Simulated scan of single mutants.
Amino acid sequence: MLPAMPRDERERFLAGLHVGVLGVTDPRGVRAPLVVPVWYGYEPGGEVVVQTGRDTIKARLLREAGRFSLCAQDENRPYRYVSVEGPVTAIEDPVDPAVRETLAQRYLDPEEARAYLTATAGQLKDDIAFRMRPQHWRTADFAAFAADFAEAGQG
């Protein structure tokens, strides 16, 4: 059994700065699920928000499936991850400029965020945001295993 994170820890982890990996089913069942890296936003107790172009395959599949998964991980030892899955609760079309700005500022330093937002200002009319309420959580924090291995190595 994987060493799971307590609720407050998993929510803090998901709210931390990670590139998420979004997974969405192709409801037609003719292809494997779409799995792509995304910028996302999340505050503990809230919804996951992702932004994409209105006419992308990702947007089409999200609309059709009505739900998605998102995984965030820490690739440094000891490894940790949080994966959430749930229904799309809202589609903001077009994306609220404040949401777009918040995501840019989350992933870029202030100067880069300003430059990015200016350079991509035309996307505002084409971008939409999907919100998802996490229903199912999967987590793992291998810190306890790492501590056990370190102790075993000293014995």
Rank of each mutant, 00 (worst) to 15 (best):
T25N: 13
T25C: 09
D26I: 07
D26L: 05
D26F: 08
P27L: 07
P27T: 11
P27G: 05
R28K: 07
G29M: 08
G29F: 14
P33C: 11
P37W: 11
V38R: 02
V38S: 05
V38I: 15
Y40I: 02
G41N: 00
P44T: 06
P44W: 11
G45Q: 11
G46R: 06
G46F: 07
V49Q: 01
V50A: 07
Q51P: 00
R54H: 13
D55Y: 10
T56D: 11
K58M: 12
R60A: 13
L61D: 10
R63H: 10
R63Y: 08
E64H: 06
E64F: 04
R67S: 13
R67H: 14
F68Y: 14
L70T: 07
C71V: 15
C71W: 04
A72E: 12
A72F: 04
Q73R: 10
D74H: 12
D74Q: 14
E75W: 14
Y79R: 07
Y79N: 02
Y81P: 09
S83T: 14
V84W: 06
G86S: 06
P87N: 02
V88P: 13
T89Q: 11
T89N: 10
A90P: 06
A90L: 03
A90M: 01
D93C: 10
P94H: 04
V95M: 05
V95Q: 01
P97M: 01
R100E: 03
R100Q: 04
E101D: 12
T102K: 09
T102D: 08
L103Q: 12
L103T: 01
R106G: 03
R106F: 13
R106M: 06
R106E: 08
Y107T: 02
L108N: 15
L108I: 04
D109Y: 10
D109P: 15
E111W: 07
E111R: 09
E111M: 01
A115F: 03
Y116K: 02
L117A: 05
L117T: 08
T118F: 03
A119Q: 13
A121R: 15
A121F: 09
G122C: 06
Q123G: 13
D127R: 14
D127Y: 05
I128P: 01
F130I: 02
F130N: 01
P134M: 05
